[in-house]
């Protein structure tokens, strides 16, 4: 059984980008709910005990629909309030260019929150191959050497081959040869990549940004198929988080009169494979889901997922 907490923003700015303060508020509620702790610092320490913490963002679509900077700012605030040195926080992606184009300020220095691409001088990829099933890859040294734990921060997207792009698919950005692993709707590759050590053991928390959802035409940006769910999906189980994300994606497709992913021959098979690898829970009946709506006053109420 895995737990997933979905926090929905139900305030008057619904349908717009959120500010970092709002993200911080939603994240605090979500993390406390997921952990069962009443204090946010205890909740954070339950997931991330100590050390250097990575935040793997997804910047494929530049500033159009990448992991929002305010989400990382809100999360950074929570972590630093917990006593984590901001220099021990590393926002990372494949390349510096992608980060910059998505609006992040690069910083590889010893001061302040770090933000860097794997292509930063002195980072690069592991010298040795990591192997799991069908995948043989070099892994970003951010993941192998630089961070002790990682928080996976994808956005919820349709994917033209995989069907779904969220937690597992975001880890394609951690390896040197992602283009080799898209056959057969990314199955079993998406599962195998997340099963590579140290990706598997260092990924401690997944937060899918489902405020805006590219429910069709992804993983690039297509304004015709951009919907608003206004929620964050939070879990320690990336497979379960993806499973809930998939439900939201299919729902948005349905209300917009689009065929299911299966009907478009993009059934998301890799979640079942990931479950078989022990990466998490793909079966809905084994997911303990809590959905909480939060309005502008901070009032919380339990609601349905869809």
């Amino acid at each position: 059984m895995s737990s997933v907490c979905v926090i929905k923003y139900a305030g008057k700015n619904k349908g717009k980008q959120l500010a970092s303060e709002k993200y911080q508020q939603l994240l605090e509620i979500g993390l406390k709910t997921l952990s069962g702790e009443s204090k946010i610092s205890d909740a954070v320490r339950k997931f991330i005990p100590s050390g250097v913490i990575g935040m793997k963002v997804n910047c494929l679509t530049r500033n159009l629909n990448s992991t929002p900077v305010p989400l990382t700012d809100g999360l950074t605030k929570i972590l630093t309030n917990t006593g984590i040195d901001d220099n021990n926080i590393v926002i990372w992606e494949r390349t510096n260019r992608e980060l910059e184009q998505a609006g992040f300020d690069l910083n590889a220095s010893s001061f302040g929150r770090r933000c860097l691409g794997t292509d930063t001088n002195g980072i690069g990829y592991s010298a040795d191959f990591y192997t799991s099933g069908e995948v043989n890859s070099l892994v970003s040294r951010v993941m192998t050497d630089l961070v002790d734990f990682n928080i996976n921060l994808p956005i919820l997207k349709d994917h033209s081959i995989a069907g779904l792009s969220a937690c597992l698919k975001n880890m394609y950005g951690a390896i040197n040869n992602p283009n080799k692993f898209h056959d057969n709707n990314c199955d079993p590759f998406a599962a195998d990549i997340s099963n590579l050590e140290p990706i598997r053991s260092k990924n401690r928390l997944s937060i899918i940004d489902a405020i805006r959802v590219q429910y069709n035409g992804g993983p690039g940006y297509d304004s015709r198929y951009l919907g608003f769910y206004n929620g964050l999906i939070i879990s320690t189980d990336p497979v379960a988080a993806d499973r809930i994300g998939l439900e939201i994606l299919e729902h948005l497709r349905k209300i917009n009169k689009l065929p299911t992913l299966k009907q478009t021959e993009r059934e998301v098979k890799y979640l079942r494979t990931a479950e078989q690898l022990g990466l998490g829970v793909a079966s809905r009946k084994n997911i303990d889901l809590k959905v909480i709506a939060v309005d502008d006053t901070g009032q919380q109420s339990e609601v349905e997922l869809l």
Binding site: L60, T61, S160, I161, N177, N179, K180, H182, G217, G218, P219, G220, Y221, D222
Partner: peptide, 11 residues
């Protein structure tokens, strides 16, 4: 078959 911002197998 490649959608926007994606690459082929060749990379």
């Amino acid at each position: 078959r490649i959608t926007d911002m994606e690459r082929g197998y060749c990379g």
